[in-house]
Design a protein around this nucleic acid. Structure first.
Lengths: 164, 164
DNA sequence: GAATATAGTTAGCTATGCTAACTAATTACT
DNA sequence: AGTAATTAGTTAGCATAGCTAACTATATTC
């Protein structure tokens, strides 16, 4: 509930804002943000079909490609999913030869899971499809709107990293 | 690919923007927007567990509550899902007595599906949980940031309504 | 060396998506 | 009027993806 930013930041603002937004305002923004995110992803997700892999697999693969090799439990935590769920996702990725699994030399209980070159290629292909679709839609925005959007996304990204 | 906005709009901007954003910029914004939306929804969705109904049912119920009674095919189209999928979703909602199904008096093939009072109550409860969770997180933003976010969401909402 | 803790897997449930093939009702065309 | 084509939904069957509970195997602790 607390607002963490200092008064100092607010001085640099162009307009004068109240120290806190009203509850109503916050709820309204939250509501629209929620519904907009749902509809956006619903559209974008359809581009993934072309990769032949489901969203959970693509998302896990992306963690491996961009975050490097991981143990199963680490992957599960990164994806906010329980270990049995990740176990199946990884099994699917391995079946499609998108990841390679070896035992951790220091701890035989742990798996060392990493993306294969094919995995990297597939991920980049899928990513390109999604992003290019989205970009094609955003292309209808004016540069100002795009800049506003970019700023808002940055705000959200930072906020997300602090959520529980 | 075309940029649809006129020069006129750009004159009223505070800063000078180029007439079009670079391809790189658009792709980068699309990429971050995509990943941010995914992570945001992944968090928010966990609030839904308390309602005892899955996301597809809650979403369909929401269409009925806010959009009024619908036939099954209309619901499927609104949710961008195929009829057999919606058939099962509606069956589940009916089993939980969240919707009521009668035959369309003018066309016996069509179903007349509408939310029951319980359905309305459950939806509003779930919605409140999600939105209040999101709002609690947004509450950490400064009023300026919130305003930026709200503006960006409005831009996105408008853009979404024009997508194919 | 025995007890405990940790990492993953297996089994089994639910939900959500799909396509293909079906039934039933309506509309269109002789 | 009667048949053909279209439209609305359902059923069957498959895959993915989430969960919990119960299991195995390895490490760690005492």
């Amino acid at each position: 509930m607390s607002r963490r930013r200092s008064i100092k930041n607010q001085k640099s603002a162009i307009k004068n804002f109240p120290a806190t937004a009203s509850r109503q305002t916050v709820l309204a923004v939250a509501d629209r943000l929620h519904s907009t995110a749902i509809h956006l992803l619903r559209r974008v997700r359809k581009q993934d079909i072309a990769t032949g892999e489901g969203p959970a697999r693509l998302s896990a693969l992306s963690v491996l490609v961009f975050g490097g090799p991981k143990a199963l439990g680490e992957l599960a935590a990164a994806e906010q999913v329980k270990p049995p769920t990740m176990s199946r996702i990884v099994a699917g990725l391995a079946r499609s030869q998108l990841v390679e699994i070896t035992a951790d030399p220091h701890d035989a209980r742990r798996l060392h899971i990493r993306a294969t070159p094919q995995g990297r290629r597939l991920l980049h292909k899928g990513r390109r499809l999604r992003i290019e679709y989205l970009a094609a839609q955003l292309d209808h925005l004016t540069p100002q709107e795009l800049a506003q959007l970019a700023a808002a996304v940055a705000i959200l990204q930072r906020a997300l990293s602090n959520w529980r």
